[in-house]
Amino acid sequence: MSQITREEVAHLARLSRLALDDAELDGLAAQLEVILEAVAKIGEVTDAADVTPMTHAVPLENVMRPDVVRASLPREDVLAGAPAAEDDRFRVPRILDEES
């Protein structure tokens, strides 16, 4: 397993929207290193090569619902938990970049 650098952790923190300070980044780099070392042993499982990954614990398929409209939430309930609202919408600080 490769060494986890502070820069790598900083990149992961950016991806996951966590504003971490240098001390946290260093701490996490060290902890991640230890944890990854511990989990690295799954790489030893050689008989896994041709095995289908298990993504679900239930053998279900094609679970669907009919296209029927059901009541939405009352708008006051929708906005009740909002940190900020304006004009019946959720208010957020300025957005830096477009992404979609």
Binding site: A13, R14, S16, R17, L18, A19, L20, E24, V92, P93, R94, I95, L96, D97
Partner: peptide
């Protein structure tokens, strides 16, 4: 920005 606020909030 929203990105900063989001990241601070989560941190």
């Amino acid at each position: 920005s929203l990105e900063e606020v989001m990241s601070l909030t989560r941190a």
